[in-house]
Simulated assay, not measured.
Amino acid sequence: MFPLRDTITYHGATLATIGLIILNGIVFLYQFSLGINVFPEFFYTFGFIPDIFFQDPIGEFSTIFTSMFVHGSFLHMLSNVWFLWVFGPAVEGRLGFFRFMLLYLLAGIAAALTQGFSLPESTIPMVGASGAVSGILGAYLILFPRARVLTIIPPFFFFFFWLPVPIYLGYWILIQFVYVFYEVAGIAWWAHIGGFFLGLVLVLFMRPKRNYRADPFWECWRDYC
């Protein structure tokens, strides 16, 4: 299910969200400028590799952060920053710049460690912002349980559905567990799960700095704004 927008119209400043999107784009452009043949070397230098990390956690700790800004392809990068663009502004509006960044980075750390502990002997680099973005999704579910998400559901590409956030994100996290169960390779599913639940729990300790309001079109949600 592909999200297009939500029903939250009052965001406030979104400097962190926009800054993270720009930074991810700049890093990818730099990767691309080096040539596709250099991608594997780039991944092994800046990606999070569980086997190497657990041999030298202090020396390799920086790769947890660098891996959040490295992506395997343009589509990989675009999908992550799109989810950040849809769900990030509302969360940042509630938490403010610094708490939003703290949540994002801690979710990224939790994502990497969850993936690492699930496959401690893996020598495959984990890259991408999806773990950190998953933390934003978890926080969104707690902060905006009454919001809705405008969604495209394949194969109905010409139809749009307004799905309640609990249904949309509930389905999203369920799919992560399904892929883990069936051992679908190629994506760090455990990282998504770890980041999501860190965001879900951590935001409970971060007092939102302002209330929010939903799109006036959805008058029935006004009581929850």
Results as ranks from 00 to 15, higher is better:
residue 83 F to C: 12
residue 162 W to C: 04
residue 218 W to P: 08
residue 213 R to A: 11
residue 48 F to W: 11
residue 15 L to S: 14
residue 31 Q to D: 11
residue 73 S to V: 05
residue 159 F to G: 08
residue 126 M to Q: 14
residue 75 L to Y: 14
residue 176 Q to I: 03
residue 167 I to L: 15
residue 128 G to Y: 06
residue 47 G to N: 06
residue 151 T to M: 01
residue 134 S to Q: 02
residue 3 P to E: 03
residue 109 I to E: 06
residue 124 I to A: 13
residue 49 I to D: 14
residue 32 F to M: 14
residue 220 C to K: 14
residue 24 N to W: 04
residue 148 R to F: 07
residue 194 G to V: 00
residue 192 H to F: 15
residue 3 P to S: 10
residue 46 F to M: 13
residue 16 A to I: 02
residue 24 N to L: 13
residue 150 L to R: 05
residue 96 G to R: 00
residue 223 D to M: 09
residue 84 L to P: 02
residue 67 S to Q: 09
residue 101 M to I: 14
residue 22 I to D: 12
residue 171 Y to P: 03
residue 223 D to E: 15
residue 40 P to E: 14
residue 60 E to R: 06
residue 102 L to I: 11
residue 76 H to Y: 09
residue 112 A to G: 03
residue 107 A to M: 01
residue 164 P to C: 09
residue 139 A to D: 00
residue 124 I to H: 04
residue 133 V to G: 03
residue 6 D to Q: 08
residue 62 S to D: 12
residue 56 D to F: 03
residue 103 L to N: 00
residue 57 P to Y: 00
residue 96 G to P: 02
residue 172 W to V: 08
residue 158 F to I: 10
residue 152 I to A: 07
residue 156 F to L: 11
residue 63 T to M: 02
residue 17 T to R: 01
residue 147 A to G: 09
residue 121 E to W: 10
residue 198 L to D: 04
residue 29 L to W: 08
residue 215 D to E: 06
residue 67 S to T: 08
residue 225 C to V: 10
residue 105 L to K: 05
residue 211 N to D: 13
residue 11 H to P: 04
residue 78 L to Y: 11
residue 192 H to D: 15
residue 59 G to T: 03
residue 178 V to M: 07
residue 31 Q to I: 09
residue 84 L to R: 01
residue 21 I to P: 03
residue 170 G to Q: 06
residue 55 Q to P: 05
residue 74 F to I: 11
residue 185 A to L: 10
residue 101 M to G: 04
residue 131 G to Y: 05
residue 193 I to Y: 06
residue 198 L to T: 05
residue 163 L to G: 04
residue 100 F to L: 00
residue 198 L to P: 01
residue 28 F to G: 08
residue 198 L to K: 05
residue 218 W to A: 11
residue 124 I to Q: 14
residue 150 L to Y: 09
residue 163 L to W: 07
residue 145 P to E: 15
residue 31 Q to A: 09
residue 181 F to L: 15
residue 110 A to D: 06
residue 146 R to G: 08
residue 37 N to V: 08
residue 173 I to T: 07
residue 54 F to K: 11
residue 139 A to I: 02
residue 149 V to M: 00
residue 66 T to F: 03
residue 189 W to Y: 12
residue 201 V to R: 07
residue 42 F to W: 15
residue 123 T to W: 06
residue 150 L to T: 09
residue 9 T to S: 10
residue 41 E to C: 01
residue 142 I to V: 04
residue 80 N to E: 10
residue 25 G to T: 02
residue 168 Y to M: 12
residue 186 G to D: 05
residue 25 G to H: 04
residue 107 A to G: 02
residue 164 P to R: 02
residue 172 W to Q: 10
residue 39 F to S: 11
residue 40 P to N: 05
residue 50 P to R: 01
residue 23 L to S: 03
residue 108 G to A: 05
residue 55 Q to Y: 09
residue 118 S to R: 10
residue 131 G to S: 07
residue 59 G to V: 01
residue 153 I to E: 09
residue 135 G to M: 06
residue 88 G to Y: 00
residue 154 P to M: 06
residue 131 G to N: 08
residue 217 F to H: 11
residue 158 F to H: 15
residue 162 W to G: 05
residue 4 L to P: 04
residue 132 A to I: 00
residue 187 I to W: 15
residue 158 F to Y: 13
residue 66 T to W: 07
residue 218 W to S: 13
residue 29 L to R: 12
residue 224 Y to R: 06
residue 50 P to G: 06
residue 92 E to A: 00
residue 187 I to C: 12
residue 3 P to W: 05
residue 60 E to M: 10
residue 103 L to D: 01
residue 161 F to Q: 12
residue 28 F to K: 01
residue 63 T to W: 03
